[in-house]
Design a protein around this nucleic acid. Sequence first.
DNA 1: GGCTAACCGAGACGGTACGTCGGGTCTTATG
DNA 2: CATAAGACCCGACGTACCGTCTCGGTTAGCC
Lengths: 195, 195, 195, 195
Amino acid sequence: MSAPNPARRNERTRRAILDATLALLAETGYADLTIGAIAARAGAGRQTIYRWWGGKGAIVLDALVDAVEVTGMTLADSGDLAADLRLVLRATVAEFADPRISETTRAITIETLIDADLAGQVRDRLLRPQLDAVKDRLRAGQRAGQVRDDLNLDLAVELLFGPLYHRWLLRTGPLTERYADGLVDLAVAAMRPAH
Amino acid sequence: MSAPNPARRNERTRRAILDATLALLAETGYADLTIGAIAARAGAGRQTIYRWWGGKGAIVLDALVDAVEVTGMTLADSGDLAADLRLVLRATVAEFADPRISETTRAITIETLIDADLAGQVRDRLLRPQLDAVKDRLRAGQRAGQVRDDLNLDLAVELLFGPLYHRWLLRTGPLTERYADGLVDLAVAAMRPAH
Amino acid sequence: MSAPNPARRNERTRRAILDATLALLAETGYADLTIGAIAARAGAGRQTIYRWWGGKGAIVLDALVDAVEVTGMTLADSGDLAADLRLVLRATVAEFADPRISETTRAITIETLIDADLAGQVRDRLLRPQLDAVKDRLRAGQRAGQVRDDLNLDLAVELLFGPLYHRWLLRTGPLTERYADGLVDLAVAAMRPAH
Amino acid sequence: MSAPNPARRNERTRRAILDATLALLAETGYADLTIGAIAARAGAGRQTIYRWWGGKGAIVLDALVDAVEVTGMTLADSGDLAADLRLVLRATVAEFADPRISETTRAITIETLIDADLAGQVRDRLLRPQLDAVKDRLRAGQRAGQVRDDLNLDLAVELLFGPLYHRWLLRTGPLTERYADGLVDLAVAAMRPAH
DNA sequence: GGCTAACCGAGACGGTACGTCGGGTCTTATG
DNA sequence: CATAAGACCCGACGTACCGTCTCGGTTAGCC
């Protein structure tokens, strides 16, 4: 009926629920994840979950955001743009290649496809920080003359991560460091100023 | 117990089920689509569905493949690579921008995230033809000297479609013709032979 | 949505549910009786119970009616009215004194206090046959001159069973054969024609 | 943990809770009565109720006893036993016929069927005074020679009230003054000394 | 008249049962 | 023997209350 009072929320229970969610995600996968199972694992009542979250997707998002804790991420700037980007893409490729992480990412991706609100939250809280960090690095590249001035940076970021998502989503090929490197080379070639 | 005999299958029922599936997909979205609703709409028994399909994803896939009917697609070759690619990407963007098609694509995407077998089928029966058509056009571009000889064509195709999927999936920006054109320009720049 | 078709009902399941209900009634008492427990014990789905019954009371009533199976009950007529009535009242007292039966009777009585519809059913299907049998015997007594002609027979029946219910309900005293006999004597005295 | 101190009890809250209980009993009936609703209506905390009462039945009993306030009831003795009893039975019939009172009586009756302890309390605090008053009047009737000396007075009292309860409980007929009078006549006939 | 122990309102918590919904299996009767 | 219909078992859903447990705020009774 009325909204619950967050001030009175039991932090310990909140933690237990998020932890249980991550654990069960890893064990049973997203599709077989149950509110009841989370509650049981967390030693919490089911109602407590419904009190604070809207559904499975919301809990999982919270659990993931909480786990990743992306706060003020920035990329190293070694002067070598391609090298710096390689680092990021290799790391991302590694995450997608890790079955445990991949599984969870798949889970939350499903939920974003179902729930547009959630999609916005995932985008803004989970992904934007990373994408923005890359964008900042590209801007620095522009100032250093390595990147075309008139390049649309949002598009450029998509050029880096889009193919990777595509390959992951459609499983059209392996996700390896070699792949990441090739992708960076190609993207950097596209971004280079016309001589 | 024993496998059903496809020869005795009722084609009319099959059609009714696939049609009902597409109709309900458009009306209620994938998440709220139920086997029971499909059966009811199709005037079929639920058991009939279970007899011939494995689950929601399999029906939806069949319905979509059946609807799209991608057979031997090839790209026009006007000599102008960028122009030819623009046509394809603009068409794809238009599809993703169409809410009805987008919704259905989301539906099947969800299912591919859940069921890897299905993902393979979608990839091979639904997407591969299109991607291969583009790949063929790029190969022609290589022969014409517009595309670097050492370019990994699979990667190149991903460079074209990946950003688009990324933007659609994460809803990070509008899907317009302008966007398609800008993407093509960037990708073509990346593919151009070093002078 | 639509009413289920009784013709297709599974008799075995129905029996299992009624049996489970009686068993659990005896074991746990009415208050702690659960739809879920009945279903589990019967090896049935909860939905199956909800399909055919309206609630706990309806199942219990059915189970009891089914157990008692009161069909065309009549009293012996030995010529000695008091003796015949003593037999009935002693039997009733014995039932109320039996903890197992008493507990179940309490259960269904509760439900009749809550649900007037159910009360009517209990009255008509479970009790009326017995009360009517006594009434018939009293009518025979009138013909034999042992009972006042102007006696309201419904009232007379209540005079026999009412005190018994009262004592059972309020637990104001023991329910024994002696009690039954005393009650019959008093009631018969009240019914006797003024000489 | 430790028992609460009755001396510090807030009388206003106690009253509010009992009043709310009676009001809700009349409005929603016993089955749908919840502790939470009582607390809300009374503007009290649920814990306060649990502090002072054991459960729904205990509160309802207190509320009813409090409402009835049976103190030292005695029957008038006009010399005419039947007339005096008619007064009592007519009053009782009127109570049972009043839907509001009847509903509440049903409520507490339910609870007595569930909780034997409570049954004892109801019997002793709520009913015994009335029954004893009638018993006293019958004893006076014995002394006056209107009632058989060897009559079991407890049984006689049940003979008066039992049929009434029976009819109320099973709803086998209307509860009217005529009914009360007829019942008294019959009972008095049963109690009369053998000529 | 100030201190302090308790009661009080409020409401979050771990639970349990509810009644509903959909999944996948089975049974029955048509054609 | 495939089909339409639908009953069946199962189990997750989201809700309603239960009885317990904090948490401040208020209030009574003893210094």
